[in-house]
Amino acid sequence: MPLTDMTRPSGACTEARLSFWDGAARTVYCTETEVPFPDGRLIVSRTDLAGIITHANDAFVEMSGYARDELIGAPHYILRHPEMPRVAFKGLWDTVAAGQKWHGWVKNLRKDGAYYWVYATAVPNVRNGSIVGFTSVRRKPSRTKIAELTPIYRQWLEAERAAS
């Protein structure tokens, strides 16, 4: 089911129009509120081969701000934050589709416009020799890494905007 536009939060926010690999597009709203990653927990999700969410654990539901019913059946890019450059995800799908593990630091967008940083790992689900889906596990990230990557992601994003 295609994503609908986000509901504008009541407070101050910025608006952005995101387009995705499958041709879908969505208007999102972002606030400056960061929700800290909860200590000791893991965010776990699974998708099918098309990136549609098929499993969301409790931590995923809580951190995303969406109800479980809203997540199941939605594309994983429901979490895409407009400050994440496309190149940061470059190789993710190629890597896991080739049967390899992918790691990356990701800024995710919540339903309420706030954000949370994660260190994400994605692995293919190989069953009887075939890839049948993907598992993604997000854990608490290093703030040092986030501080290093934030200006880099900003540069990449500016380069992508200049090129488009």
Binding site: V44, R46, A122, V123, N125, T135
Partner: peptide, 13 residues
């Protein structure tokens, strides 16, 4: 079990 093993795999590094 496969699901749990996939999850463990993400924690190896």
């Amino acid at each position: 079990a496969e699901f749990m093993i996939d999850l463990m795999d993400t924690l190896l590094d």
